[in-house]
Design a protein around this nucleic acid. Structure first.
Lengths: 177, 177
DNA sequence: ATTGAAAAGATCAGAGA
DNA sequence: TCTCTGATCTTTTCAAT
C-alpha cells in the first residue's frame, strides 16, 4: 500500500503545543514522538505510514530526535501493576551543606536501584526523590537508613502515591481496580 | 555465534531487588527490563544475547512482560533537553468535593497535553500534577486558568524543577551544562 | 527453550526536489 | 537540507521439535 497522506484524525490540533516546541520539533517530529509514546517499538515503516513519510525519512527523523536527546525510547517498570509501593520524598537539605558533600550525596543515591527519580526543586523543598519497594514500611526503613543521619540532609517528608492516572505523558489503562 | 551464558558483569548483584520483584519477575526478566530501560528499541536478538537466551525465548518473555503490563516500552520527551520549563504541582482538593466532580476533574486534566503526570497522594497533599510549558510564567498562567476557580480544587502549590539527575530509573547524561 | 525458513523490517547508496 | 526508491542485509515471526 502506498504511504498515505497525513490522516486527518491524527493531525496535531493543538497550536499551543506547536508553538512551545517549534524551537526543536516541528509538527511531524511531534507526531513521531506521540506515536513512539504509544508504542516505543513501533517499526520505522509503520512510523512512516502514520506520519506520511517514507520509512527512511521517518527513521532519519527518529534517529535525529534520539541523537539530539530530545526524545528517549526506553522500557519502564509499571510499579502499579507489579504490586509495588512507591512514594515521593521531599528533601530539605542542611542549610550549611557544602557543594562537595551534596555532589557526593547525589552520586551515592543515583546508583540506588530503589530510587528511580532524582530532581532538584526551586522552592519549599530542595530535592525530590521517588522510591519504590515491596511495601510502605520497607520504604520507610530504606529511607531511614539512607537519609536519617546523612550530613547533606536536613529533613525529609514521604508521601505515598496511592494511584497513578497518567504517567510518561500517557493515560494509564488498568490500575488495581 | 552461539548465545553465551550469562555474562558475569551483567548479573543482578542485588538480592534486595530480586526479593522485591520475585512475585512477578525473575532475574532474567529483570535483566530484560534493565536492557530495555537502556535502549527500548534493542532487538530481541540482542536482548537474547544479553540475557543468554535465544531470540525467541527473549522475545516471548518481553512480550509477556508487556502484555501483563509490568513493563512498557515508550518514547518520552526529555524536557530538560528541549529547553522547556517543567514543574510539580501539589493540589489540595476542596474538603467538600463529591466523587463525581473529582472524577470529572481528573478526566478533564488527563487530556491536557501539557500535563504529563497525574498521581494521587496519601498525606499532606491530595494530587500531584506535573506540567510543562515554554517558560515558568507560561506554567503559572496555564495553571491559573485550569485550577484557580475549579470546584474540585482547594489550593495548589507549584514547585519548579530546576534539574533532573535521574528519571525513568535512568541516570541522565547531559543537562544544559 | 530452540531451530529453520519465510515474511517483514532495517539500512545504505544513489538520486531528485 | 530533506526526501524518496531500490537493493541487500538483519530481524521478526511462526511452526515444528
Amino acid at each position: 500500500m502506498a504511504p498515505q497522506a497525513t490522516p486527518p484524525n491524527e493531525r496535531l490540533n493543538n497550536d499551543k503545543v506547536k508553538q512551545i516546541l517549534k524551537k526543536h520539533l516541528d509538527e511531524t517530529d511531534y507526531r513521531i514522538y506521540k506515536a513512539l509514546n504509544e508504542d516505543g517499538r513501533m517499526s520505522d515503516t509503520e512510523l512512516g505510514e502514520r506520519v506520511g513519510l517514507s520509512r527512511t525519512a521517518a527513521r532519519r527523523r527518529r534517529k535525529n530526535l534520539e541523537e539530539k536527546g530530545l526524545i528517549d525510547v526506553l522500557g519502564v517498570l509499571v510499579l502499579q501493576e507489579a504490586d509495588l509501593a512507591y512514594a515521593d520524598v521531599f528533601v530539605t537539605l542542611n542549610s550549611d551543606v557544602d557543594t562537595e558533600t551534596l555532589e557526593e550525596f547525589l552520586e551515592e543515591i543515583k546508583h540506588e536501584e530503589l530510587i528511580y527519580e532524582i530532581g532538584e526543586y526551586m522552592g519549599q523543598y530542595d530535592l525530590l526523590l521517588r522510591v519504590w519497594h515491596a511495601s510502605l514500611s520497607d520504604i520507610n526503613t530504606f529511607l531511614r537508613s539512607l537519609l536519617q543521619d546523612h550530613d547533606a540532609v536536613g529533613q525529609y517528608e514521604t508521601i505515598p502515591v496511592t494511584k497513578t492516572h497518567k504517567a510518561w505523558h500517557k493515560t494509564l489503562s488498568g490500575g488495581t481496580e
